[in-house]
Simulated assay, not measured.
Amino acid sequence: MIRPAKPTDATAVVPLIIQAMGKLASKLTHVEEGHVLKEIFTHFFQLEGNQYSYENTLVFEEEGKVLGSLNAYDGGKLLELRKPFLNYVVEHYHANNANQDAETEGGEFYLDSISVNPSAQGKGIGKQLIKAGIDWAKKLGHHTVGLLVEKNNPNALRLYEKMNFVIQNEKQFMGGLYHHMIFKIK
């Protein structure tokens, strides 16, 4: 079942967010230690008003266990949602976040991170989360859903294309090259 996340889901969801972000989690925070990354993302997952908040997250739960998550929000609010996060890592970890790229923009509901527990991959959970993200966007009145996929991730690219996402353009983001893909809600 897919449901809105709760602050108490942090233990299960934070590793999924970090898994989805990969190296970007360290680039964004300027922190390499896994336990510290977990602390930072847990802190923000449990708070409201930021891009990694539980309020911007859906979870896939089966038999009481969270097996997947989707983090998404209005792309036009990215800078506002990211600000508390960046201020925190600057203050507590002396990070220099002056030149952060924006991965989304106004006019799209942005699917930030989609992740499935490795033990549950290949069961269609990711597809269900993406469909739930599209439904969420539609409910909020959005007409476009966007996401980024690394150019060197052909499996993810195929999945999104099968779900009728199309490449709109290429985007440089935090040192990597990505396909910016969109889905038009009819």
Results as ranks from 00 to 15, higher is better:
L58P: 01
D74F: 10
S69T: 13
K77D: 13
N50E: 01
I17N: 01
Q121M: 12
M1L: 09
I134K: 04
G49S: 09
K138E: 14
G106S: 13
G126Y: 02
G76I: 15
I130S: 03
A20D: 03
I185R: 09
N71Y: 15
A5E: 01
L177P: 11
S26V: 06
I2M: 04
S26E: 11
H143Y: 05
G146R: 00
F183S: 03
L16P: 11
Q128A: 09
E55F: 03
F45E: 00
L148G: 04
H179E: 07
V149C: 07
L70T: 07
N97M: 12
K23Q: 07
A5Q: 01
D135C: 12
T42Y: 02
H43W: 10
I17W: 02
V149F: 05
H92Q: 15
K6M: 04
F85C: 02
K127V: 15
I18K: 02
I18T: 00
E80Y: 13
G49K: 13
M181K: 01
V145L: 07
N56P: 02
L111I: 13
A137H: 05
Q46L: 00
R82S: 12
E55W: 04
A5S: 08
F165P: 04
G176N: 13
K127P: 09
G146N: 01
D135L: 15
G126M: 01
E63G: 10
M1T: 09
N71Q: 12
I125V: 14
F173W: 14
D74H: 15
A25P: 04
H179C: 09
W136M: 02
V149R: 03
L16I: 11
H92S: 12
H143K: 15
A10H: 05
F45Q: 00
E63P: 06
K65Y: 12
I167E: 02
G141N: 09
I134H: 02
V89P: 03
G133K: 07
G146Q: 00
A137I: 06
Y160D: 05
V166F: 10
A102K: 10
L16G: 06
Y73I: 14
F85T: 01
T42K: 03
F85K: 02
I134M: 06
Y54E: 03
N96E: 06
M163I: 11
A120V: 10
D9Q: 00
V59Q: 03
K151E: 11
G133R: 10
F109L: 08
T104N: 14
E62V: 09
K23Y: 04
Y54M: 04
V36W: 09
H94R: 13
K151Q: 11
E55P: 05
K65W: 11
E150L: 06
I40S: 05
L111T: 12
G124H: 13
V116G: 08
V89N: 04
K184W: 00
I18C: 01
T29K: 08
A12N: 05
N87Q: 11
G141E: 06
G22F: 00
G107N: 11
H35T: 14
F41G: 01
K151H: 06
K127L: 14
E108S: 10
G175V: 03
N71I: 15
N117H: 12
K131M: 08
G124N: 09
K186W: 04
L140Y: 08
E80M: 10
H142Q: 12
G176A: 11
Y110K: 11
G34M: 08
G133A: 07
D112G: 13
S53M: 09
A132D: 02
K38C: 08
E48V: 02
Y88L: 07
Q19A: 14
